[in-house]
Design a protein around this nucleic acid. Structure first.
Length: 651
RNA sequence: GCCCCUAUAGCUUAAUGGACAAAGCCGCGGCCUUCUAAGCCGUUGAUCCAGGUUCGAGUCCUGGUAGGGGCACCA
């Protein structure tokens, strides 16, 4: 936030060092890491080390301190800097808090829900996530994927990238056919009531079907015959599906829609709006076409004449002598395409039709080899975007009793956890807000419950596995989502009672013309209709830009009084938000924002406890603190938005 | 056999190569006639092992140990 000042200081340091023949090198600036201190800092170890390398006999730490002390002079008399100290090789510059605090507060309140957002980057990013299989259950592992992907999409969007959210459901293959077979055989024309009941029913049918199709231990000859008959029936359905048999296709489309209805509802609960839906079955055809192109270009080798498959010897084509990407199959010897083939075809669509510059894949870490292979082939193919393909892998979610297994039906369903979360939040609300109407109470409870769940999944670095413990995930105290939401509530409460006017948070709406006209770009894909909220518009606190306008606006204030440590630290943290956004976007790491949001909430809670606002000693101090609270509330709201967590006014 | 990921406090996790390794949970002790106690304050406690690079290593490199994942016609 204080780049201009920093640059001016750095220029002075450089001039001084040039005159005194100190080989400075690059200067790294960081916020002063001591709590209660506000300013920025740099060190001179590198410069001292550079000198040492020229042959001078010096001890680096001492020399660094000498340089810091020398440099201190030229920069000690700058406006806005209260104090400069040289200590242990570091140069610490402390802000004139009155001036800088006012600037931070003004900036936040002026920029509102855009505070922290980066300038337009002029690049288009597509984030692909939410790729569950249809005809299956949506479990907590899928939720990690969806939540991680959405948060990443929000981060890159907020950082200034033109962002497209893409979903790629697997709607074909043996698993899907297995469900069709069992449904057709045992449950034809039945269906339970309720979107989720119906979606989950398909997963139950799948588990039953697997039991019937798997060989048991000590299988009797009769059982074996029976099983083989079933297997033949399933193969026949697959053949019919592949041949486009109308009856099978209709059954497939109808049951697929049941899964998709449930998926859309879940995404709605998670506040996720997918821009583009790519179905695996849609890229199946095009994927076969690209195989010919890859053969013609000499990337793929056609071994079909020898009764083999079409393969890519990736290492060989890249000229690698050590095995790295190995060899992979593009087309089976029976002419059908594979997962890799489809991903290549889809990438081509992303690059050519959607003109994406960067392509992010939020996919289970177990597929990292597969994606590395795909990226390598895209590079061979000549797509310059291949360099900016990124696999955001994440560790899988298991249960305390072991891995989840869709085949065995041992899964924790997202919907069940979400419902449980709401119940627990409702219970935790208790008698806290007795006057709240029941309908609103339920909405808040859902927001708190989901806040806890989302934060639990986002506060672990993405490459780590998570053992999902529902009691830990739905904890509302300590390092949790509700803790952050509660800080927002407390800030909002103070502002409400102070009777000052403020902008309601309102949704950050960075949608570009491009995203809005996506619908016309790719006729083969289905474009999401915006799902409607089952609970009505009140469910999302961010769907409107209403302004709550009771009372007078915050007046320009002065922070020209003795600020407490808590106030200094709070302002310091607020001012770091834009840098956190930038870092998270550069590193594609939602965790950075999750950590930041907690730190800010933590600081706000401490401030709240220790520093009176409405009861402040003087009117001037009260007004300044109100500004600070308003700025903190806005920053908390923006950070929560990035995490996909609502910013309730009450809880 | 080869490749990738992980290893920090009793537990779950943080830490752009930089200053005293930071929190949460659990335990113990305080704080509701100040703005929401889903909170605040206090308290014990940690970098898997061995080398190396560097002025400086939890972080980078090499080799171990332990756990997880992956290696062409599954997705």
């Amino acid at each position: 936030m204080f780049d201009k000042e920093r640059q001016a200081i750095e220029a002075k340091i450089r001039t001084y060092c040039a005159q005194n023949e100190i080989p400075l090198g690059e200067l790294k600036w960081v916020p002063i890491p001591f709590s209660g201190e506000w300013g920025f800092s740099t060190s001179f170890f590198q410069a001292a080390a550079n000198e040492a390398r020229t042959g001078k006999k010096i001890a680096v730490p001492q020399r660094a301190q000498e340089i810091a002390e020398q440099v201190r002079g030229p920069v000690s008399d700058l406006p806005g800097i209260r104090r400069v100290e040289a200590v242990k090789g570091y140069l610490n510059l402390y802000f004139d808090t009155a001036e800088y605090a006012r600037r931070v507060a003004d900036t936040v309140l002026e920029q509102g829900n855009r505070f922290g957002a980066g300038p337009a980057k002029g690049e288009r990013v597509m984030v692909e996530y939410a790729q569950p299989n249809t005809h299956h259950s949506f479990h907590i592992g899928h939720a990690r994927n969806a939540i991680l992907g959405e948060t990443l999409a929000r981060i890159v969007q907020f950082a200034g990238f033109d962002t497209i959210r893409a979903s790629y459901p697997g709607d074909m293959g043996l698993g899907v056919i297995t469900v069709l077979w069992a449904y057709d055989k045992f449950y034809k024309d039945q269906q339970p009531q309720g979107i989720h009941e119906r979606g989950q029913w398909l997963a139950k049918i799948y588990v039953e079907a697997i039991k019937l199709l798997e060989a048991k231990e000590n299988e009797t000859p009769e059982e074996k015959v029976q099983r083989e008959v079933r297997e033949a029936e399933r193969r026949e359905i697959y053949r019919k599906w592949d041949a486009g048999d109308p009856e099978v296709r209709n059954l497939w489309l109808e049951t697929r829609e049941w899964s998709l209805e449930e998926l859309r509802d879940i995404l709605c609960i998670l506040d996720i709006n997918i821009d583009v839906w790519f179905f695996e079955s849609d890229v199946d055809g095009p994927s076969k076409a690209i195989v010919e192109e890859l053969i013609l270009r000499g990337i793929a080798d056609d071994e079909r004449p020898q009764g083999g498959a079409v393969i890519v010897k990736i290492d060989e084509k890249l000229g690698l002598t050590k095995e790295k990407y190995r060899t992979n199959v593009l087309l089976r010897s029976d002419g059908t395409s594979l997962y890799l083939t489809k991903d290549l075809a889809l990438a081509k669509v992303k690059f050519e039709q959607y003109q994406v510059d960067r392509s992010i894949y939020v996919v289970d870490v177990r597929q990292s080899m597969h994606l590395q292979q795909a990226f390598a082939i895209l590079k061979l193919w000549g797509f310059k975007q291949a360099e900016k393909c990124f696999h955001l892998g994440y560790g899988f979610v298991s249960l305390p009793e072991g891995a989840m297994s869709a085949r065995r039906g041992r899964v924790v369903l997202f919907k069940d956890v979400a419902d449980e979360a709401e119940q627990r939040a409702l219970a935790a609300m208790g008698e806290r807000t007795p006057e709240m109407p029941e309908s609103e109470r339920r909405i808040i409870a859902q927001q708190i419950g989901l806040g806890a769940l989302k934060y639990a999944l986002l506060s672990v670095d993405n490459n780590k596995d998570i053992v999902f413990n529902i009691d830990e995930a739905l904890n509302f105290e300590g390092h949790t989502g509700p803790y952050i939401q509660n800080a927002h509530v407390r800030a909002a409460s103070i502002l409400r009672k102070s009777n000052v006017e403020r902008q309601k948070s309102g949704a950050f709406d960075p949608s570009t013309p491009f995203v809005r006209r996506i619908a016309s770009l790719m006729p083969r894909t289905t474009v999401a209709r915006r799902p409607s909220r089952p609970g009505g518009p009140g469910l999302s606190a961010r769907t409107g830009c209403e302004t709550a306008s009771s009372g007078q606006a915050l007046r320009p204030v002065s922070f020209d009084y003795e600020l407490t440590t808590h106030e200094v630290q709070l302002i310091d943290l607020i001012s770091r938000f834009p840098a956190a956004v930038e870092q998270a976007a550069n590193e594609y790491r939602p965790l950075v924002i999750a950590n930041y949001a907690f730190d800010l909430a933590n600081e706000f809670h401490s401030f709240y406890h220790a520093v009176p606002v409405l009861q402040a000693g003087s009117e001037d101090v009260k007004n300044a603190r109100l500004q600070l609270v308003a700025a903190a509330r806005q920053t908390l709201a923006n950070a929560l938005w990035l995490l996909g967590i609502t910013d309730p006014e009450v809880m």
